[in-house]
Design a protein around this nucleic acid. Structure first.
Lengths: 192, 192
DNA sequence: GCAAATTAATGATTTATTCAAG
DNA sequence: CTTGAATAAATCATTAATTTGC
């Protein structure tokens, strides 16, 4: 509610600053020391007001959230049991159809174990306004890829044979990842 | 064996499938796991031929290109100096009561290998510019100095005189600064 | 109007990072 | 220090759009 003309109560990084910080972070600097912080600060001050403590906190927070994110991901993937992924190639035949085939263990993937309720999971996956690489899901592997060569059986279409156009309906896939309150909340009150 | 049935070398999604996928994506599912891919696939197969890997790839690509798009936008707005400086205050800036030290395990101040790479931003912009400015007659203005303070010849944006952002070159932090973004097979400017 | 030629989109693969476990 | 697991980035490849000459 504070008018835009007053002092910001806290540091407002400019896009450039954020970008550069992320770049630095991605390049491997997770915990800058004092010298590095000074250096970064002086460089970033070119793009806007910034202090050393901002840089320091930024790295602290970023690292923490990164770990949190990864931990959650790992946790999720552990609940899906242990998958194996195998990739096979079939370029010997007429078609060079390299394709992957992932398959699940003996367990039924359908029933997610004691996973945090799917709804909450999808809430975690909630819409991301920025491109801040939020992502959630666990593993990806093809299910029932079977012979793999199921790409045949054409119709007469030379291009893409997509003749079957029916009604377009959004289906709830078990309601696990479709927002239940879908629709009005454009922003989606996801909690990360 | 049938010459008439040309096997499509790749999946061609129907409009319905694309629409549904986008809806799902917009709803927050960025990286579906195996189960979700399964569900999506089976439901989408109603509208046309589709496999799990198609769904998987779709999400991967969509997410990546979404991110790419946003990043590009940011870069563009960055290079256009079209940013406002945050409100500046000069009172409680430098030394406040937040006495905190950058207490970090002296991890070696400057063991960072020097690496004078141009920043990724520049590469991005370079590509953009190169794409529009075909080597017709212009000169490379940004190739001048690598100091970064080459305040350029832009119009008078008298916001905060922050200006030039041509060579966003930071100090060596670790690893390479060359990374990131784009390279649309154009093979235009600098390669990767 | 139409195809060949060219360009833009996008599906599919490969390569590099990343964190953490062993 | 090495390895496993899982991407995300980069890249390759093919389809659709479009441009262009006739």
């Amino acid at each position: 509610m504070s008018p835009s003309s007053i002092t910001p109560s806290r540091w407002c990084p400019t896009p450039e600053q954020v970008m550069i910080l992320e770049e630095i972070y991605r390049n491997g600097l997770k915990t800058p020391n004092a010298t590095q912080i000074q250096h970064i600060t002086s460089h970033l001050s070119f793009y806007g007001k910034i202090e050393g403590k901002n840089v320091f906190y930024w790295f602290q927070n970023h690292k923490a959230r990164d770990r949190q994110k990864l931990r959650r991901k790992l946790y999720k993937q552990l609940q899906q049991h242990h998958f194996f992924m195998k990739r096979q190639r079939f370029d010997d035949d007429h078609d060079h159809h390299h394709f992957f085939q992932y398959f699940l263990p003996h367990h039924d993937p359908q029933l997610l174990p004691q996973l945090p309720s799917p709804s909450s999971l999808q809430r975690e996956l909630g819409e991301e306004e920025a491109a801040t690489e939020v992502e959630g899901g666990g593993g990806r592997r093809w299910l029932g890829g079977d012979d793999g060569t199921t790409v045949a059986e054409e119709d007469g279409e030379t291009t893409c044979g997509n003749g079957s156009l029916r009604t377009l309906e959004l289906f709830p896939v078990r309601g696990s990842w479709v927002k239940e309150e879908e629709g009005t909340s454009g922003n989606g009150g996801w909690g990360n």
